[in-house]
Simulated scan of single mutants.
Amino acid sequence: METIPKVTATEAALKLIEYLKTQHGELMFHQSGGCCDGSSPMCYPNGELIVGDGDVLLGKLDGCPFYIAAQQYEHWQHTQLILDVVQGPGGSDFSLEGPEGERFITRSRLFVNAS
């Protein structure tokens, strides 16, 4: 039985991740659910954001852990999150890609039972 990853990334997102790693070292992501950033994925230097029991590790993208808040995961557990990139300033000064003129976004698709 094939396991479908809970989180994946487009080629554009992987390219931006590689660039950001050269600038900032190892990275981590957290799928925001906060009031300020809506559902923007946030990119940080690895270890800068303290994760705990209220966070779920969905997987790794190019070696970078990708977390989501457990409460938000309850709503999105039947979807695959797809990290992508769009042109334009980010919605937050906290995420590392903001000054690069691009921003990460999350797309999603429902898991489908193939049986």
Score class of each variant (00 low, 15 high):
D37C: 04
E48H: 14
T8E: 05
C36M: 10
G63I: 12
F104H: 08
A12F: 03
P5E: 13
A114E: 14
L16S: 06
T10Y: 11
G98I: 07
G34K: 07
C64K: 13
W76C: 02
E74N: 14
Y67Q: 10
L61R: 12
Q71W: 12
L14M: 14
D53P: 01
M28L: 03
L27E: 00
A114G: 09
M1G: 13
L83T: 11
E11H: 10
D84K: 02
E26W: 09
G59T: 13
A114W: 10
L83E: 05
Y73G: 02
E48V: 09
F111H: 13
S108G: 10
A114K: 15
C36W: 07
P99T: 14
V51A: 08
L96T: 03
Q71D: 14
Q77T: 11
G98R: 12
A13E: 02
S95E: 06
H24P: 00
F104Q: 06
I17E: 06
F111T: 13
K21N: 06
S95D: 01
E2L: 11
Q77N: 14
S32F: 01
I4N: 11
Q31E: 05
Q80S: 08
M28K: 04
L61F: 10
P41Q: 04
G38V: 08
S95A: 07
A70W: 09
L57Q: 14
Y73T: 05
F111A: 05
I82D: 04
F29M: 03
S95W: 03
A9S: 11
P45Q: 13
G59F: 05
R103T: 05
G34Y: 09
I17V: 15
N46Y: 10
E48Y: 10
G91D: 02
L61G: 08
E2I: 13
T22W: 00
L58I: 13
T79R: 15
W76K: 10
V51D: 04
D93P: 01
G33S: 11
T79E: 15
L27W: 04
R107Q: 14
S92D: 01
V56R: 12
I4L: 10
F29W: 03
V7G: 02
K21W: 04
Q77P: 00
I50L: 11
G52F: 05
I50T: 15
D37N: 06
R109V: 08
R109Y: 02
E100F: 04
D53V: 08
S92F: 01
G63S: 10
N46L: 15
R103D: 00
R107N: 09
M1S: 13
